[in-house]
């Protein structure tokens, strides 16, 4: 028996997200009294792979193959399923990110395993296997029982701390190779943004809404984000107007994020926007309307005009930085 975890890599490197997943899986394994096994797919060197042991992976299995450079839902699923069977996994843990959303449902059918996605805590109980997850886009939570012998969990991003529990393990190179007949998607081009902090990775996010009034007023907001090492985001009307790019739209139908700190500037806090940001640890609201619903979600607030307040915040941050 084991808990199998799939920490994804990005160009051969793991991220905080990968370590959160392994930390989570090793805690679940502890609850069950079994080992956490990590499976890595793609080209990752030994030094990088061994980092997974720092977060509690008791076994590390690496599947390397030139044909596995980009995600193929079907081929990756069959590889993970094969490893899951070979280690008799009773729980399989993936991230609730783009890759997890591609693989977890296919695995569910392949392994005849019930799935709970977007889980944000350790299981409530393991004898009767119950997990706690967000539903209705964060307007509520549910205790969900998974009834099958094999269970699949996708972990909500930024919902679990990394925990170091170092183990000494040898890295096992797996002989499992992808079935060429399953590698049917062909990536023809990759366009990557560079130099921009990814919203889903950012610890701090500075976000602007209609209260910013026009596309020309974003200067101080961007400067504040730079000073904080933060990502920039916006509400839906802003991306619909074309003031900011669509990939910055956070909210129910845009990106769903959970940073440590979220600045909602000139955002009234419509229920659809809150659905995308409500898992943030701290929310700061700046709005001219003292009755705006965003203040109900926020821990800190300033009632006033963003155009006047932002420069004051930037000035103060510069001062703090220079110390």
């Amino acid at each position: 028996m084991a808990v199998l975890v799939y920490p994804e890599n990005w160009d051969g490197k793991f991220k905080k997200l990968s370590f959160e997943l392994v930390s989570y899986a090793s805690k679940v394994a502890e609850m069950l009294g079994v080992q956490a096994v990590a499976v890595s797919i793609g080209s990752v060197d030994e030094g990088e792979l061994s980092k997974l042991a720092t977060y509690g992976a008791g076994r590390i299995i690496s599947i390397e193959n030139g044909a596995l450079k980009s995600l193929d839902d079907q081929a990756y699923t069959s590889l993970i399923a094969e490893v899951a069977k070979s280690v008799s996994a009773s729980v399989v843990v993936l991230s609730n990110n783009n890759t997890g959303k591609a693989l977890a449902p296919r695995l569910s059918v392949k392994l005849k395993a019930g799935i709970a996605s977007g889980v944000s805590r350790l299981p409530v109980s393991t004898s009767q296997f119950i997990v706690y997850k967000k539903v209705y886009s964060g307007k509520a939570f549910a205790n969900v029982e998974i009834k099958t012998p094999v269970k699949i969990i996708t972990l909500a991003q930024n919902s679990f701390e990394v925990i170091e529990s170092p183990k000494t393990v040898a890295i096992e190179k797996s002989g499992i190779q992808p079935d060429q007949n399953l590698l049917r998607t062909k990536v023809t081009d990759v366009q990557k943004q560079t130099g921009k902090i990814l919203l889903t990775d950012a610890d701090i996010v500075v976000s602007g809404g209609r209260g910013m009034r026009s596309a020309d007023n974003w200067g101080p907001l961007v400067e504040m984000a730079e000073l904080l090492g933060a990502g920039t985001a916006c509400s839906r009307p802003v991306s619909d107007e074309g003031w900011r790019p669509h990939d910055e739209h956070t909210g129910q139908t845009g990106k769903i994020i959970a940073p440590n700190l979220y600045f909602a500037i000139g955002i009234s806090g419509a229920i659809q926007h809150l659905a995308g940001i409500s898992s943030s640890k701290y929310i700061v609201a700046i709005n001219t309307d003292k009755d705006a619903p965003i203040f109900e979600a926020a821990q800190y607030g300033i009632v006033g005009d963003a155009a006047k307040i932002l420069p004051r915040l930037v000035e103060k941050l510069r001062e703090v930085k220079s110390k």
């Binding site: 019930g114 509520a140 969900v144 029982e145 998974i146 607030g301």
Partner: peptide, 24 residues
């Protein structure tokens, strides 16, 4: 394969602490 046992509402957040705009 799965069953929702029950739902919970999110815990209310602590009340918002306001900072004066002049002293942002």
């Amino acid at each position: 394969f799965t069953e929702v046992l029950n739902y919970e509402m999110p815990k209310p957040r602590a009340a918002c602490k306001y900072v004066d705009a002049e002293n942002a």
